[in-house]
Amino acid sequence: MIVFVRFNSSHGFPVEVDSDTSIFQLKEVVAKRQGVPADQLRVIFAGKELRNDWTVQNCDLDQQSIVHIVQRPWRKGQEMNATGGDDPRNAAGGCEREPQSLTRVDLSSSVLPGDSVGLAVILHTDSRKDSPPAGSPAGRSIYNSFYVYCKGPCQRVQPGKLRVQCSTCRQATLTLTQGPSCWDDVLIPNRMSGECQSPHCPGTSAEFFFKCGAHPTSDKETSVALHLIATNSRNITCITCTDVRSPVLVFQCNSRHVICLDCFHLYCVTRLNDRQFVHDPQLGYSLPCVAGCPNSLIKELHHFRILGEEQYNRYQQYGAEECVLQMGGVLCPRPGCGAGLLPEPDQRKVTCEGGNGLGCGFAFCRECKEAYHEGECSAVFEASGTTTQAYRVDERAAEQARWEAASKETIKKTTKPCPRCHVPVEKNGGCMHMKCPQPQCRLEWCWNCGCEWNRVCMGDHWFDV
């Protein structure tokens, strides 16, 4: 396979590697080409510095992935760790964990309700045991953590790749202090920090972006993250068709209702045909949960890209028209025109101005929308079919299609509260000796007794199943 190397943020060049090629071997190839010592090179990928003893497969490097290699003399205490030698983080029983690669970060837990604080980093599902597709590297999971809308060759929703760059020099040479644990960490600028490894760059702020994971991409090709779309790892039924499908869209209502993408497309087109989208002054033209839940309008309007190009163009047109109407304007009634106009409040005669090729020149009556006339309008008909009709959803289907309910059931079956801080902690095999993952707590306690870890627990039921 081919990976592209950008040395000291210059133009990239291809390097041929195998899945079992080590990072140090990659350094040696680059060092020979650039005429520099291999031990002064640092390989940066997806916000993480890659260790010498890791392989291309370990690092989730795919065909035509772009890695950054910078030349920086080692500072005291760094060289041993980078070589894969006596790194205290690798000691058996050590409590410190390697910062998780962005290629394996899962933010789907952050669609849980606000009262489930902490689960994004504490609760991990076991539903990723799908067998890898044919042709994928051994052991590589097909679980997708992110979804994007690819405006490039795909023109559809695709699995996405999370990447990070330095907000100062805009190069992907920043190593994160810690990985993101929720969508806010990724979507809110300057929320996460790190250290830029580019020479002479003092940058410390992280800037995240997404790429389409279905095809090789260049540095400049980015895609918009659709953070309401998630892999259906909890096997929730769709609120409309009641099938279990994946991926799904999880509405931001209190129940976190789930809808499959085909039904979401149908829901949007139906509402669009009836012009029953909601115009929100802050958000724009949007839709609420299909069950009509309060405070559930979709905030990231790129989710409506699921409509496809033709329907999305209609959505944008109707949204612009609705904006004009909300501002007190009118639409030209001549067939084939429909231009938005903003006449004076007491102006009865409205002319669709033909300047700049935008208007048709038609003069019409503001009251009856017919060709302009003197005197009273002959008839004014009330528009028919403008009443909002509820999208029919079966109550039982709505009850079963809740992301929140599956989460709470998982928590109930696989977790116990920490005796000190009461945060839910998952036990997935292993011994009875637990350690609270909350940095402010870190209590060592017994899963069996529910009390602080002691010699009695150690001698009596340390390794009970």
Rank of each mutant, 00 (worst) to 15 (best):
V15I: 12
N356W: 05
S19Q: 13
L176E: 02
D262M: 04
F362M: 08
S101N: 12
S407I: 10
C368V: 02
I188C: 08
S9H: 05
C449Q: 01
L283G: 11
E399G: 10
G328F: 03
S109F: 02
P159V: 08
Y149I: 04
Y149T: 00
H302W: 07
F381Q: 07
Q326G: 10
I229G: 00
C166M: 00
H215M: 01
S101A: 11
H373L: 02
E409G: 06
L26D: 00
W447D: 05
N454Y: 01
P189G: 06
L119K: 15
C263R: 00
K76D: 14
F277I: 05
P189I: 04
L102Q: 14
T231Y: 09
V67E: 00
K151R: 14
S407Q: 09
V29L: 15
Q40H: 08
T386P: 10
A397P: 05
A390M: 11
H303N: 02
A91G: 12
C268K: 00
R366N: 08
R348N: 06
P153R: 11
I188Q: 12
T55S: 09
T21W: 14
R275A: 00
W183T: 00
T387P: 13
I122S: 15
E409H: 12
M80W: 11
G354E: 09
E49P: 02
Y285L: 04
S116F: 05
Q71C: 06
S9R: 03
H227V: 09
P132H: 11
S65G: 06
F304S: 01
T222W: 07
A82Y: 12
H257I: 00
G359Y: 13
F264N: 00
L228Q: 13
H11D: 05
A172V: 06
G35S: 08
E300N: 11
K427I: 08
E426Q: 11
C95H: 11
P88M: 10
E382T: 12
N295Q: 08
C201H: 00
D274S: 04
E399C: 08
A383I: 13
I44V: 14
S246Q: 05
K299M: 06
T83C: 11
R97I: 13
G340E: 04
T240C: 14
T351R: 15
N356V: 06
F463E: 00
C352D: 03
T240P: 01
N52V: 00
S198A: 10
I23V: 08
S145L: 04
K161A: 09
